[in-house]
Computed example of a mutant assay.
Amino acid sequence: MADIGRRGSDRLRSVLAPLGVAAAAGVVFAVVGTIDPNEPGHYPTCPFLWATGLYCPGCGTLRTIHALAHLDPAAALGLNPLAVAMIPFLVFWWGRWLVRALQGRPRRTSLAHPAWLWAFLALVLVYWVVRNLPFGAFLAP
């Protein structure tokens, strides 16, 4: 009987991490949805943009989250389409983590197959370069 109680408490403990990440994401979503990043003085400037005058892959993400919080996906896509495209993948990986925790299965040691991670890194680098070129201006925030 004690073994059953221990397994239950271990399962509860393993679920706390994904639930904590969801709570933190919810707080970020609420804060950025409430405090408008379009108004100067609320958030710091992107250090890469400040230093180089070029957009990094994350530039526009705060305004993207703000637009999504206000149910404006068209504006969000115009600010950072890569961030918007990543959301379903992040939700999928978080859901997979939560399900594994609920089932009492051990955490996976890797987020995804290395080939997928390298492909994602290549995509981010190409996005970073293209959004700073004249023909990629539509990707700029």
Rank of each mutant, 00 (worst) to 15 (best):
I4C: 09
I4S: 11
G5T: 06
R6T: 04
R6C: 00
R6Q: 04
R7I: 00
G8Y: 01
S9A: 04
V15A: 07
A17M: 05
G20M: 07
A22K: 02
A23Q: 03
A23E: 00
A24V: 15
A25N: 03
A25F: 07
V28F: 05
A30Q: 07
V32Q: 03
G33N: 13
T34N: 07
I35T: 12
I35L: 13
D36S: 03
P40A: 11
H42T: 08
H42M: 03
P44T: 08
T45H: 08
T45L: 14
C46P: 03
P47C: 07
P47V: 14
T52S: 15
T52A: 12
G60F: 07
T61Y: 12
R63A: 10
A67E: 04
H70P: 13
D72V: 07
N80Q: 06
P81S: 11
A83M: 09
V84R: 08
M86V: 12
P88S: 14
P88F: 09
F89G: 15
F89L: 15
L90I: 10
G95H: 02
R96K: 15
W97E: 14
V99D: 08
L102C: 09
G104E: 01
G104I: 04
R105L: 12
P106T: 08
R108V: 02
T109G: 12
S110F: 03
P114M: 03
P114K: 11
A115D: 02
A115F: 00
L117M: 10
L117A: 07
L117K: 02
A119N: 01
A119S: 05
L121V: 15
A122V: 10
A122I: 10
A122E: 06
L123P: 15
L123I: 15
V124K: 05
V124E: 03
V124I: 14
L125Y: 05
V126M: 10
Y127L: 04
V129L: 14
V130A: 14
N132M: 04
P134I: 07
F135E: 10
F135S: 12
F138V: 15
L139F: 02
A140H: 10
A140C: 06
